[in-house]
Amino acid sequence: MGDLVQHLINGLAAGTIYALVALGYTMVYGVLKLINFAHGDVMMVGTFGAYAVAVGLGRPAQSSLLGVAAIFLVAMGGCALLGLFIERFAYRPLREKPRLTALITAIGISFTLSYGFQLDFGPLPGAAPRAFPEIIPPREWLVFGDRTVVIWNWQVISLLIALLLMVALQALVYRSRFGRAMRAVSFDHRTAALMGIPVDRVIALTFMLGSALAAGAGILFAIKDTVVQPLMGLYVGLKAFVAAVIGGIGNVPGAVVGGLLLGLVEEFVVGYSSSSWRDAVAFSFLILVLLVRPSGLFGTVTAEKV
């Protein structure tokens, strides 16, 4: 029984990260109909930014409330700028080109970032994994039985931060003027432009928002797994994409549910079946969903426009 609860906790923790990253995928897909393949790598860059700030702050400062806030702000702000830069110079010129052109560009950016960060000259980090500083000093928050289940303080804090980010995003998309503009662009960006919505600015802001979320997810990921490495974005990004597709790409609550679902299913495959098949789970899920219900669990079925 204890291990079942433990698996649930593990799965939720992994799923939260997938969900946060999936949100970025889903938003960008919503407004641009582009699979932003580089999203996971933007997350990696953000995490390395956080790593640099944390190491720069040093031991006592990095785990103070102010220090943690600074780490999150710098990483998320930096990533927002990176997202803006990528959108402005790589995606915007291709907006009216065939969709595949943008996808290839995205793959190119993903490769440039993930392998560029593996270089070990200049200020670049090099390929070896690094230990992420404990910016939330681990403490046992709840202990059940004879230590059969232990819940740590950072697990609770991470979950709270993730929930907070999700709720804020949901409010932004459905309750604010900007959110309405975003949804209008997503619905039809030409009409939106005719209605006086500054499409370029909305898309740029969406990108910044998604990238900032990715950085936040990256930091939570690094707190959870205590390690950062240049290729970390590749797999997390792919799995988050799968999560977004499961939930119905373009759908905000769908991405969250998809992420949590994927995290839990992976965890239970590892726990009760064979761990060597973990990486096959996400992709079988993806193929299955696309074949049976391409619009995902929460997506609405739309006819392909000609």
Binding site: L34, L100, L238, V242, V245, I287, L290, P294, E304
Partner: peptide, 28 residues
């Protein structure tokens, strides 16, 4: 046969998933 019904970018991701699955299978 099944996946070519999908639109371009989805197809791309499915082929990627297939490639990864082959590796998982072979490793096992």
């Amino acid at each position: 046969l099944p996946s070519l019904r999908l639109r371009g970018d989805y197809l791309a991701i499915v082929t990627l998933g297939f490639g990864e699955m082959i590796r998982v299978i072979v490793s096992n």
